[in-house]
Simulated assay, not measured.
Amino acid sequence: MVATTLEAPAGRAGTRGDRTPGPRRSNYMARTYPLWYYIPAAVLFLVFFVVPTFASFFFSLTRWTLFDWEFIGFANYRQFFAEPQLIGSLSNTVVYAALTSGAKVVLGMGLGLLLTSQIRARGLLRSLVFFPVLVSTIGVGIMFTTMMHPTDGLLNGALAIVGIEGPKWLANPHLALLSVALVDVWKGVGIATVIYMGGITAIPVEYYEAAKVDGSSSWNSFRHITMPLARPATFTVITLSLIGGLRSFDLIWAMTKGGPGFASDVIASVIYKQYQAGFYGLSTAGNVILFLVVMVIVVPLNYFMSKAEVDR
């Protein structure tokens, strides 16, 4: 039996070992290497959020066009708060966001309870509830504008059959914003329902079984089990609905264009109108005000909801 011995060449004996990093270099790479993964997201965040945000703050203090600008301080903000229709749009924005978010919370929880129960055709009903979310917002706006026509609309036609004179949904200054809010709820409640379905199905069944053994009614089980344990879903629906309501534009513009008059104008529609009229500085100031309104409402609300969740 012949034994063969393989030996590394003399000049290359320590080559592989020399390339192994020492303990200090290894620890440094372990700490810093994952940081490289943040760079693409950080660049995108800087380019598409930080820079435009600070640019908006700056240009809101100017009178600008595409080729020139003039610094005028807070004149745009003074003009914004001095014009009644602009202040009216601010109040409309808050009312619209409150109406739509409140309705989505109530209807979303109700539909979530229904669609997680043992009912027939549950899958079909889930699809029907979520279907409006998939439809184009502009398409929904055009469809409901036709349906809400005061004389030829489907809604008033159906009411006329039973002898009821239908209202002028979008032509009445007192009903226009409410009418658009109802359409917004119809279109967006599917998202709230899906969130609630996820929250409700995550609740252990044993809690309900124990409550049933103790003689608890369905209402008490909902009140003491479902509502507290579905609180994260409620917080999520409130936050998303408020942000969406405060920033809403496309549905309102498709249905009323802020009318009749300024009855359904929100900050976003006013901003668009100012851009159309060439008042770029004033519209940029409106953008900043909208950003601040969203931050002032959503950030404290999110803080208190998170604190309540931790303390629960």
Score class of each variant (00 low, 15 high):
L90M: 12
A55V: 04
T151Q: 15
I142M: 12
I72M: 10
S136R: 09
R24E: 15
S56T: 07
A10E: 15
Y38L: 15
E309Q: 13
Y96M: 13
A202I: 03
M305A: 15
V205P: 00
L90K: 04
M143R: 07
V205G: 06
P52G: 06
L46V: 06
I138Q: 06
A3I: 01
L86N: 11
L159P: 02
K187N: 08
P34C: 13
R63C: 01
G14Y: 09
E309F: 00
A97K: 13
V296K: 04
V185W: 09
P204E: 01
A82I: 00
L282H: 09
V296T: 13
F262G: 15
A121P: 03
A8N: 07
S217V: 11
E70F: 03
I161W: 05
T116E: 12
R122N: 09
A30G: 01
S136T: 05
K104G: 02
W186Q: 11
L46Y: 06
R19D: 15
E165A: 12
I200H: 08
P21A: 14
L177D: 12
W253C: 10
T193E: 03
P300C: 06
I238E: 13
L290E: 14
A285N: 07
R78S: 06
D265S: 11
F291G: 10
A98C: 06
Y37I: 06
L90H: 01
A277H: 09
P173Q: 03
N92F: 00
A121Y: 04
L175H: 09
A55F: 05
N92I: 00
W219T: 02
A13W: 03
P132K: 03
M109Q: 10
P173V: 00
P40S: 12
R126T: 11
I195A: 10
Q85S: 13
G73V: 02
M305P: 02
R19S: 15
P232R: 11
T4S: 03
T15L: 13
V105T: 05
V51P: 01
V237W: 09
V299Q: 06
I200V: 07
G188F: 06
G163N: 13
R126E: 07
